[in-house]
Design a protein around this nucleic acid. Sequence first.
DNA 1: TTCTTGTCACCTAGGTGTTAATAT
DNA 2: ATATTAACACCTAGGTGACAAGAA
Lengths: 223, 223
Amino acid sequence: TVQLEMKALWDEFNQLGTEMIVTKAGRRMFPAFQVKLFGLDIHAEYMLLMDFIPLDDKRYRYAFHSSSWLVAGKADAATPGRVHYHPDSPAKGSQWMKQIVSFDKLKLTNNLLDDNGHIILNSMHRYQPRFHIVYVDPRKDSEKYAEENYKTFVFEETRFTAVTAYQNHRITQLKIASNPFAKGFRDCDPEMWPRNHRPHSLPVVSSTVRNRSSLSDPHPSGT
Amino acid sequence: TVQLEMKALWDEFNQLGTEMIVTKAGRRMFPAFQVKLFGLDIHAEYMLLMDFIPLDDKRYRYAFHSSSWLVAGKADAATPGRVHYHPDSPAKGSQWMKQIVSFDKLKLTNNLLDDNGHIILNSMHRYQPRFHIVYVDPRKDSEKYAEENYKTFVFEETRFTAVTAYQNHRITQLKIASNPFAKGFRDCDPEMWPRNHRPHSLPVVSSTVRNRSSLSDPHPSGT
DNA sequence: TTCTTGTCACCTAGGTGTTAATAT
DNA sequence: ATATTAACACCTAGGTGACAAGAA
């Protein structure tokens, strides 16, 4: 059996309609796909991997006025179907079960010509992550053939829409609130600022407008 | 066969008398022990590991006036003998040979009660790193017994003295010059400064005196 | 219009030698 | 005296969404 970690957070995103950023260089998923495994053979070897299948044959667009997703036509040409092996593969059942298995090295890209081994997805399309456990049969000469004894697990709460920029503002806010790497965009303690190291010639405009805008527009209060 | 990477750098350190810092929390080695492997069986599985043996039964101290190491008595009680398995172990010969094998996760500690699995060494003692390749015999029931088919490799240029603080100033300078993480202590381009973000109330005193001293001594040029 | 790209400030995470204070 | 410790400034390395400019 397999147990999805951070299920509460996944549910929260799923209720809003999860979006995952895809970039040319590859972007990690947040939340990361993490599972706890039970019932494996302690001594047997397994490969753990993930793939992503289209949820439907449609292309979507986001209607900002109604804050909802609309069908925008038929799906684009399918992307190269890739698989992501967990980097610890292969390993014994005991290894996989003694701690949470995290796929945080997995990256999503929209570059059809990607040669970094990332998962290629079409932006504005919906996908369902899948998790596979492949038993490595020691009698076969190569484990590449052994994709017969395997099990597949699907957690529907991990489905998402691939995007190049977030569409639903509530998704953005939930990402900022829950992803430690986005802490710089959190809106709490606005009077604790100014931050350290801020050049005093570039005043803080507001707590939500970053001073990056001051760089490209040196007269934020003028004109 | 095994080829030591960065041999030129190791030689440079070894000529001065390499020192490696040991801390309670564990400190990485610099240079890191890295090797290229040749002639392994592509399909066979191997465990790669390192251990450290005392070079002699002596304790040392550094004479600053003569810039040389002196014998300071017999060795302290031996530390718990530990080994460090390369985290990718076990893996196939093809995996080990297709790129440089780096032991950069290995850490040295002087904490006799360490329970992080780090290598425990006595400060002010000399050590010789050793590298072992263990063939995992598939017929044995457990690879823990299989430590019969193995080979050991010793690179004398990697020997060092364990220290809690650098003794030979030339070692310090070579570490600063060659370790990217110590770039902040390099002395080049002193007129390129002041650095960004430096509070202008804390002037740069000199290129070698860090402004940390300004914190505990607010009048570095006074008194 | 709608979507994508590249750059940026701002973080997390952790590896450096320095230094002052503390052991021994 | 000599050796060790803990906090620190300063890095490397890389993961965030914001934003402006570009592309379709």
